[in-house]
Amino acid sequence: MKILIQALLFILWTAATSYGQSSKILQLADSLAKEILENEGLYTVMGGLKPISTVIQFQFKIDSVSQAYLSEDVPRKQLDELISALGLLEDSPIGFVTLPFRQVYGEQRVFEVLVYHRESVREKIRENFSFFLERGIHPHTPIHQVLSMTEFDHSVPRFRAYGYFFGYPSHAVDFFVEAAAHEKATKEFVKRDFLQIPVSSKDEGAFVYAVPKGYQAGKEDVHLKEQAMELLSIYKLRKSSFMSSDREYPFLELYWDMVKPELCIRFRNSLSRF
């Protein structure tokens, strides 16, 4: 497997440099892989327990009146590099979307990178078919289109869509929507508690969802956490072996090892081009 991964990285490096890029793209890809694996994205790329996850957020300066970018060259260059790096992480089961937030904050327009598990997202749409079909979404709607439609929806049901996609239990999705509707109607914030699922980098503040004040974890919450902890244990075991040796792009190699069925497909496809 080690030889296979090293061969894949050589092919990816060749692909990057063939487009006039340098090891900077591989370094960025390694950094993004670390953000995914060390945080809640792990639960997305390892089988889709969490259909989508946030990878990073970033911002560009805009004019506070016109909301035009102060310089188009800066976002163009940074986004080109980002998309190139994400291309080294994307494969048939796993994809990425880079979206601006609908809401503008002062003199900044904030973007986020989302990682998604294709089949897991489609399964959520199938499970909640009527809800999504009302919004013109079906299981074969392109996922970047689904997420754009969700982000730029001004209605409260957008919170339900996000709840499904971020992997919240059904009761938490209901509370998420009901609390948003109450706050919109009354301007009154609904008090709440939070349930936390640890990730590699921290125990709280990553995979987290709101529940009513005083709520005690039920079977659905316990089962979700147990599934996540099993995946986290597998990851930590693999990580210990990858971090113990001198690797130039340790998290990029580890990323492909964690999704090795897809790694093998890409490796074979890359070889067929030569």
Score class of each variant (00 low, 15 high):
K50I: 02
V74E: 07
S53C: 08
S66E: 03
I52V: 08
I36C: 05
E81N: 14
K34W: 04
P75W: 04
P75F: 05
Q78Y: 10
L79S: 14
F58P: 05
I36M: 04
L37R: 04
V74I: 09
F60W: 09
L49D: 11
L79A: 11
Y43T: 13
D73H: 13
T54V: 08
K34G: 06
K50W: 01
Q67P: 03
M46N: 07
E40I: 06
G47M: 07
E72L: 11
E35I: 01
D80K: 15
R76Y: 05
L79F: 07
E40C: 08
E40F: 06
S53R: 10
I36G: 07
L42H: 02
K50S: 02
V45C: 04
M46S: 08
S53L: 03
S53M: 05
V65N: 09
Y43C: 13
G41F: 14
S71L: 07
K61E: 07
Y43K: 15
E38P: 08
P51K: 15
K61T: 06
I56L: 11
D63T: 00
L70W: 12
V65P: 01
V45K: 11
K77Q: 14
R76K: 12
Q59W: 01
K50R: 13
K77Y: 12
N39L: 00
R76D: 06
K34Y: 04
Y69S: 04
P51H: 15
S53V: 05
Y69M: 03
Y43R: 15
T54C: 08
S71P: 02
A68G: 02
G41K: 14
A68N: 10
Q57W: 05
E38V: 10
Q57T: 11
E40L: 03
L82C: 12
S64G: 04
I83P: 00
E35A: 09
G47C: 06
L82E: 09
L37S: 00
Y69F: 13
D73I: 09
K77T: 13
L49T: 12
E81R: 15
Q57F: 04
E38R: 14
F60Q: 10
Q78K: 14
F60H: 14
K34P: 00
Q78A: 11
G47I: 06
E35W: 03
V45G: 03
L82R: 11
R76M: 06
I52N: 06
K77I: 08
Q59V: 00
L70S: 08
T54A: 07
K77W: 08
E81S: 14
L82S: 13
L79Y: 10
R76A: 09
K50V: 02
I62F: 01
A68S: 08
Y69A: 03
I62R: 06
E38M: 13
K77S: 13
I62N: 03
S66P: 02
K77P: 02
Q67A: 10
Q67D: 10
V65Y: 09
I36L: 02
L79I: 12
S64P: 04
E35S: 06
P51W: 12
D73L: 14
L37D: 01
S71Q: 09
L70Y: 12
G41T: 11
